[in-house]
Amino acid sequence: MSACILESGNARDDAFHVHAGSYLERTARQRIAALLDERSFTEILPPSERHVSPHLPMLGQPVALDDGVVIGEGRLGGAPVLIAAQEPAFMGGSVGEVHGAKIVGLLQRAAEGVANACPAGVLLLLDTGGVRLHEANAGLTAISEIQRAVFDARAAGVPVIVLIGGGNGCYGGLGIVSKCCDYVIVSEEGRLAVSGPEVIEAAHGVEEFDARDRALVWRTMGGKHRYILGDADDIVPDDIAAFRSAAQRRLGHPRPLSLEAVEREHAMLQQRLQRFADCRDATQIWSALGIAEPQRVPLMDIDAFTEIADAAREKGRGENNHA
């Protein structure tokens, strides 16, 4: 075994090898252990190597030995994958210099081929408010580097698959990066956007966005709305087994990023902006898409929801038009 990889299969993680239960409530390590094949995960730059933020101590802030993101290699349904999982409990999953560099390195590793073999996919388990303000400039730069590295992995034919179902949602620059990847898998509890509700409220007041109105937040940015619009490829219940099987189906199916693909996406997004230009609430969009009782959408279980949402998405049209 190489000096820079340690086996991370300790007793605590083993307890989470049951591929069932809430995704939302788990830590980054528990999510990885439960998502991948049993005992298949090896961590790169594990906590024992102490790659901590060099900046947080200057502000009197505590550090994490993994800087809030766990990366490594493993298998999913037998297929080799690379994986990164942001730790929700450490500074809101925010991206600092080291945190970002770990994800960049992982994506570059995927693009270059691990031991000359392309992995079947890179899984990004994003759970983040965005840039870590304590190291803001490095965080923003790192997110741009992640974006570049995503495009390089895609150009190498390695699909990058984003999983969103954590308590922080997926906001800021990584909310943009998510849509630069091949696939987005989201749970109903997941949220995906650039600007968070608090940021919008702080800038333009509670009349523009009441950040405490949870129903409004989920209608506007939540998994169901993103799925109806076609900005999420799969929606799953908050269950690790559901995330696992959805991710497994997407492995080995890269979406080539071609001029034709972005032109199709361009037409699709233009049509969306025109069609919904006067909508002020998600229920108006859902209604315009032919959903009979839009106010019931937030209450539906995933099976019932998927049925009506797929009809609204015109059976795969949204999917085919994404680049």
Binding site: F151, K179, C180, A193, V194, I200, E208, L269
Partner: peptide, 27 residues
């Protein structure tokens, strides 16, 4: 920073712009 832009998917549109640049670079 607006409710409408997030509702309609500003992240998807900003990502689309990035993808257009990425395709230009590739070509």
């Amino acid at each position: 920073l607006s409710r409408f832009d997030e509702l309609i998917g500003n992240n998807a549109c900003l990502a689309h712009l990035a993808k257009c640049f990425a395709v230009a670079r590739q070509r």
